[in-house]
Design a protein around this nucleic acid. Structure first.
Length: 798
RNA sequence: GCCGGUGUGAUGGAAUUGGUAGUCAUGCCUGACUCAAAAUCAGGUGGGCUUUGCCCGUGUCGGUUCGAGUCCGACCACCGGUACCA
């Protein structure tokens, strides 16, 4: 009887006491494998965590058995909104609930029986860690990459608080259901846009899924175009527009400003004032979703003012409309209704002039064509040439210039929340904005704070926190009360693992250069555009400041798929269809759960959970157990050719598959090997020990506890995980015969077993002699014969 | 709408990258053991037919090729991301 509970505990204890998996920082041949650290919001590890941690652990174990020194650390991304909301609801302090959750989760992760290195301490909400998060902020500030600006936030007027995007979905406050408005607040931002080009271009250097790279490129949204300056008629004012189609400038018949554009107030005419004010008010009420809906009809009002098209001096009306966003480009566009769908829709609705400048079919015409009504572009028909010519002309006449624009915006990092790392800034009446000196870090987050939302950052209400002295002049001063976005904490944790106990620095340059980049990073695809861009930005910024010498944090990336419920639906607490890994660890043990997760899905796809599926793995291990328990003591080196073939083929396939994270097919190969051993035994043959040892060795990364126990049963001393992974022998995989497939016009008409060393000519000859093949070519002319060595012959007849 | 991805037996999923479609499992069927059931073991299992063999079959329609699940074009369905980006 195999008591998995006792056995799993026994070996976990053994590994811990013997530090079987301790990483050697000074060793060679390192692999740094990192799974995205988890967020301890719930008290329990869910199946997704299990999938994320246990499966890559098999890859790590495989690498270890191949002589690599593998580092697989664990930590917790412990700051964040859910803990704070939980506290508001229950009164349990975020620090207490978070630390308690971490404790639970560590126990659960340990139950996996992984090779995780617990000799480190990366928990983002602890002062030893966030001291360095604050240090990061100071360094970015010092280098001009952190700055303050008025920026719009989601604001709930009823709760009197700032909302995260996810709390304001659909423009409705998640807490009270009232309409969310946008409000400008002074915010801290990181200048990630400085790195926009590198963030796109360096994607070529990394081994990431193509779809993730594409997602990042789209997110950053580089577009090449031009700035064109428009003067305002009878006024000193002017404005700039950004356009990717400056070639259509002659077709510009009006301009549109974002309603929030400050210029609007300066140019609006008396008789249009009421309409403009009313429209502005309506726009501010609209949620971003409503405002940007493509199904919504275009709206807008005329300001009464006119702009001068610099290219031809034409006076064009200036409108405002919510389809122009203040946050992108210059907050103003030139409208060319003939060649832009949105402008066309708008012009048609408001009866504005439409001038065609490119020949082609129906308007709006956005394709290439011959330019018309465009003096300086006469004779052009290539868009690219026309754009270049126009930019040249604009620059010569000081009407505008070439410009690259990005969809990416600077990263707003200030949060009006309690549960985050305080921003290390002090405001002094005399000295202004003063960064906290490095030696005063960390700026500790006080424990006793009232964090029920009331319109102010919770830290603002904590007097002993706010009041301080200015580090420069020593006078009374006040601390910044906003905290940092948790994405700041998770942007650099991969570096801290390289040097987790450093008290002088977040990490030493030498150690970080030795350990990084991460060789294999594994986590959900939902982080494609936030965490995975922010970490890349941090890496590049730290490199430019001289703290490290590489360009990218994660050399290779894999996204695990999603495990769905038995009906194929996403699991969620609200739907009540979650599956707890603990129940299955309890019922079948960690090895079986892990193997099932590997066997049932392709790792990057995921799929629906199946109760029958996990039972089949249970059966698989029972069959192995029987084979080992019924071992007859045959210690000879007796071999069977067919067993050798399957064994070596399996090893070869597994080695290849594991390198590609294809766990499901690897397990199929082990099953094939097991099946042939069982078959031999059922034929009454004895299975020599060396075959059993190979079975247990190839299985070791997949079932660490079970194989350790079987290894011991076969008379070995632990640990099997320090053994070498079996290597295959090509010579055992040579077959003397193969099945020659004969096709006639591409259809299989015969299969003949032939000797492996026959020539192409012989293959053809044998094929043509086959009775069934003869039937199909009878009375027809052979046009040609295609021979693929060791595979098939295709006879083409007519 | 745009950008990605996926579509293969009853089910999860394979397919050496253009060369025998369905590895390995699950389920189901048959048999053995059993008073019986479960468990276990053995065999079978894409559909159809006039069954030495033939026809059909990888979402649909078309194309390239001696040969297509794989490549190309159009379409359909589902999933994920994103939201008028000028």
């Amino acid at each position: 009887m195999y008591n998995f509970k006792e056995i799993e505990k026994k070996w976990q204890k053994y590994w811990e006491e013997n530090e079987t998996y301790k990483f050697d920082f000074n060793g060679d041949n390192k692999i740094y494998c990192l799974e995205m650290f988890s967020y301890p919001s719930g008290a329990k590890l869910h199946l997704g965590h299990w999938y994320n941690y246990s499966v890559p652990d098999t890859w790590v174990r495989f690498k270890r058995m191949n002589g690599y020194n593998v580092y697989q650390p664990m930590g917790f991304d412990a700051f964040g909104l859910p803990a704070e909301n939980y506290a508001i609801k229950t009164g349990i302090h975020p620090k207490d609930s978070t630390e308690a959750n971490i404790k639970n989760m560590i126990e659960q992760i340990k139950a996996i029986g992984g090779t995780f290195d617990w000799h480190n301490d990366v928990v983002t909400c602890r002062p030893e860690y966030y001291k360095w998060t604050q240090w990061m902020f100071l360094k970015l500030y010092e280098h001009g990459l952190a700055y303050q600006k008025e920026a719009p936030v989601n604001w709930c007027p009823s709760c009197n608080t700032v909302l995260a995007n996810e709390q304001a979905q659909g423009g409705i406050c998640e807490r009270c259901g009232s309409e969310v408005i946008h409000k400008n607040l002074k915010q801290w931002l990181f200048k990630i846009t400085d790195y926009a080009d590198q963030l796109i271009d360096d994607l070529d250097k990394i081994d990431w899924p193509e779809k993730t790279k594409t997602a990042q490129k789209n997110w950053i949204g580089r577009s090449k175009g031009a700035i064109i300056k428009f003067k305002i008629k009878d006024s000193e004012e002017s404005f700039e527009v950004f356009t990717t189609r400056c070639d259509t400038l002659y077709g510009c018949t009006y301009c549109v400003l974002a309603p929030e554009n400050p210029l609007v107030d300066k140019i609006v005419k008396e008789e249009n004032l009421n309409a403009v004010e009313k429209y502005k008010k309506e726009t501010s009420k609209l949620s971003e979703i409503d405002r940007t809906s493509t199904v919504k009809e275009k709206t807008g009002v005329f300001t009464g003012a006119y702009a001068i098209n610099p290219i031809n001096g034409r006076e064009v009306p200036i409108w405002i409309s919510d389809y122009v966003l203040a946050s992108y480009g210059t907050g103003a566009v030139m409208a060319v209704p003939a060649h832009d769908e949105r402008d066309f829709e708008f012009a048609t609705k408001f009866n504005l002039r439409i001038i065609r400048v490119i020949e082609g079919c129906d308007l709006p015409y956005i394709e290439e064509g011959k330019y018309v009504n465009s003096p300086i572009l006469d004779g052009f028909s290539s868009k690219e040439e026309a754009i270049n010519k126009m930019i040249e002309f604009l620059e010569e006449n000081n009407y505008g210039y070439k410009k690259v624009n990005y969809r990416l915006r600077d990263w707003s990092v200030g949060r009006q929340r309690y549960w985050g790392a305080p921003i290390p800034i002090i405001y002094c009446d005399d000295c202004g904005v003063v960064p906290v000196p490095e030696e005063d870090l960390p700026v500790e987050l006080p424990y006793n704070v009232e964090f029920t939302p009331d319109g102010e950052s919770p830290l603002a209400k904590c007097e002993e926190f706010v009041n301080c002295t200015c580090p420069k002049c020593g006078k009374k001063a006040k601390r910044e009360v906003d905290t940092l976005d948790t994405f700041v904490c998770s942007s650099w944790y991969q570096f801290r693992y390289a040097d987790p106990f450093n008290k002088e620095m977040p990490f030493s340059k030498e150690k970080v250069n030795k350990m990084l980049p991460v060789d294999k990073y594994i986590g959900g695809a939902e982080h494609s555009c936030m965490h995975l861009i922010y970490s890349r930005f941090f890496t590049k910024a730290l490199r430019d400041m001289g703290y490290l010498d590489f360009d990218e944090p994660f050399a290779s990336l894999i996204h695990q798929g999603l495990i769905l419920d038995a009906n194929g639906a996403k699991m969620s607490k609200s739907k009540g269809n979650t599956i707890s890994p603990d129940d299955y660890v309890d019922k079948y043990g960690s090895d079986i759960l892990r193997t099932y997760l590997m066997f049932a899905f392709s790792y990057t796809d995921g799929g629906p959970w199946s109760e029958e599926g996990i039972k089949s793995i249970d059966r698989f291990y029972k069959r192995i157990l029987n084979l080992i328990e019924e071992f007859d003591g045959n210690d000879s080196d007796e071999r069977y050719d067919d067993v050798d073939y399957v064994l070596n083929n399996s090893i070869k396939c597994i080695r290849n598959d594991l390198d590609n994270f294809q766990f499901n097919t690897s397990i199929s190969r082990i099953m094939e090997y097991l099946n042939i051993l069982i078959k031999k035994k059922s034929e009454g043959l004895s299975i020599p020990k060396h075959y059993l040892e190979q079975l247990i060795l190839i299985l070791a990364p997949f079932a660490p506890h079970f194989t350790e126990e079987m290894w011991e049963k076969l008379g070995h001393t632990p640990s099997i995980h320090n053994e070498k992974y079996p290597m295959y022998d090509e010579s055992k995989m040579v077959k003397n015969t193969f099945e020659l497939v004969v096709q006639v016009n591409g259809k299989v008409r015969g299969k003949i077993t032939v000797s492996s060393d026959i020539s192409k000519e012989e293959m053809e000859e044998i094929a043509l002699k086959n009775d069934n093949v003869k039937k199909h070519i009878e009375g027809k002319g052979i046009i040609k014969v295609i021979v693929i060595p060791k595979k098939l012959v295709n006879i083409v007849v007519k």
